[in-house]
């Protein structure tokens, strides 16, 4: 089995620590060999840093990868943004000797050298490829009676040429992983649409970012689900914190709980709901919380 180092990024440890907590618990339950990646920085965030300066983006990403190279472990990301930065930088550095030389010139100053010896993985892609939905079902102790609006997030599958996870218009691999937990992945209008946060739009143009989010939330609300599931803490933040901002801006009263896939999986693996950190989310939906505790206690 692949040896992994867990890359946390910024938003998980610094805003949604529950995702960090349960990701580790899930990896343990699934017997996946993953350790911390000490001293890792921002990936750096692709939307902003890749928009500012390519050399900086590559160098900072390379430093994170080098720490993992020294540990002889593949990098495991739990965020589409981190995946986009680290995987794309890794592909560029492996395939472009000139870029690699330039980046190594910069890394030399801090006594590091990029070799190109490890891979960058995303937890969804890893679970699908290395365990698969069928085998994953055998780990499930608490099948989830939940209806889920799944949000893939753009950078998990696009650009498709680099991601190699198939078609981006109608993918199913992530839905299969959701359904392996017993939950139902409900189809909804504009399911593959962006959450509106990426590319520096959330930080630079918040009003426009919320316009996009409001549309997604309206579509999800109409589908009548228990919660939103994502695999990207930045989408997660947009859906969770952004939901309150949307309510304020548009006078709506959305209260749709938001879970990272690790949190959904944790519930299905029988991990206690109080480990998830969903009670720390911006959106507080007591009905959902009660349901989750009932499912965990086996009374639903």
């Amino acid at each position: 089995m692949t040896k992994l180092s867990l890359f946390l990024g910024c938003i998980v440890p610094n805003r949604y620590p529950g995702i960090e907590n349960v990701t580790k618990l899930c990896l343990e339950k699934l017997d996946l060999d993953a350790v911390d990646l000490p001293g890792a920085s921002c990936c750096p965030a692709p939307g902003v840093f890749k928009s500012f300066d390519k050399g900086t983006w590559l160098s900072l990403a390379a430093r994170n990868v080098v720490i993992s190279e020294k540990m002889e472990r593949d990098v495991l990301t739990i965020c589409n943004g981190c995946y986009a930065s680290l995987a794309d930088a890794n592909i560029e550095l492996k395939s472009d000797p000139e870029m690699k030389a330039q980046t190594n010139m910069c890394l030399k100053g801090i006594g590091m050298e990029y070799q190109g010896t490890v891979e960058v993985r995303h937890i969804i892609e890893l679970l699908y490829e290395e365990i698969g939905p069928e085998k994953l079902k055998s780990y499930v102790t608490t099948p989830l009676d939940l209806k889920v609006a799944l949000h893939y997030g753009c950078h998990l599958i696009k650009p498709t040429k680099e991601r190699k996870l198939g078609n981006s218009e109608n993918p199913t691999f992530f839905d299969e992983l959701v359904e392996a937990t017993g939950a139902e992945s409900v189809d909804y209008t504009d399911k593959m649409m962006c959450c509106g946060a990426g590319g520096g739009v959330r930080s630079g143009h918040i009003e426009e970012s919320l316009e996009m989010l409001e549309h997604k939330l309206a579509c999800i609300q109409r589908a009548g689900v228990d919660c939103i599931v994502n695999a990207c803490p930045f989408c997660h933040l947009q859906f969770d914190k952004g939901q309150l901002a949307v309510n304020e801006k548009f006078g709506t009263d959305y209260s749709i709980p938001v879970l990272h896939y690790s949190q959904l999986l944790a519930l299905a693996l029988g991990i206690s709901p109080d480990k998830l950190g969903i009670e720390q989310n911006a959106v507080q939906n007591l009905e959902f919380l009660a349901k989750v505790y009932e499912i965990n206690a086996g009374i639903r």
Partner: peptide, 11 residues
């Protein structure tokens, strides 16, 4: 700076 880099157009 309104592009979210979702890559839909590119695809």
């Amino acid at each position: 700076w309104l592009c979210t880099t979702c890559y839909t157009c590119q695809e």
